[in-house]
Amino acid sequence: MNSLAKPAGWEKFFWPLLAAGLLLAVWYYSVVWTATKVFPSPLSVDKGLAGLLHKHVLWADIGDSLRRVGLGFGAAAIVGIPLGLTLGWYPALNQVVNPVLQFLRPISPIAWIPVAIVFFGVGDRPAVFLIFLSAFFPILVACVSGVSNVPAIFRRAGRNFGLSPAQILTRVVFPAALPQILIGLRIALGVAWLVVVAAEMIAVDSGLGYLVIDSRNSGKRYDLVVAAMLVIGLIGLALDLGFRSLEKIRSVRWGFRHES
């Protein structure tokens, strides 16, 4: 905005790389200067990461975390989308149910852990339940507001052309609400990724979250801790970008503002 000239194409790579380079340099030198014995330098993190990859441990952990997210997120979508569409379509029903939902929403999924363990035992299932909970509310909210924000003009046109209410829901309301639903799904996926790490720290013993906590507990391997954190960040970013590319599909693109 305040730049004097439009940035050139190569600058798209130059500036972030410069910033990343600065960050790495600060990191490296602060480790050297403080002569800390515990906190890893970028190099040792790199070595640690290579080691993990080499021992195939990393792929198993990544797979576990992704699997749990997939299951929990999928379940949340399967339950949340139809429910959200229904609540959005019948505002009277929404008015009755909404206060309960608004009350349950701020309860951190982590707070559900003891109850989840009672219901599901230990292992994968309580973790998947937590992920389901965390993804459910953003999806529900996005669907409800997506449906209620469909301009009345579209619903009227649907009626005008002789469509039945079911047809209006599937052929008009759902496509019109789809951009907002996609945004809700993307946000839910992001939250699910945050929660899986937390759930794995507490309730299970595999996955990236477990890797973080375990690397510290069994040997203070902070190089592995940081390596695992970076992997978490990169995969989370990849998931987010992957989802954003869905927003480019032609029949949904109209709902998203094009970033210049």
Binding site: F154, A157, N160, F161, G162, V172, P175, A176
Partner: peptide, 20 residues
């Protein structure tokens, strides 16, 4: 007694379905 395809309403341009 209700909307009918025999009489169609045309609005300002926002009436067009953007996903089609």
């Amino acid at each position: 007694h209700g909307p009918d395809p025999r009489r169609i309403l045309v609005f300002q341009e926002r009436g067009v379905f953007p996903w089609l």
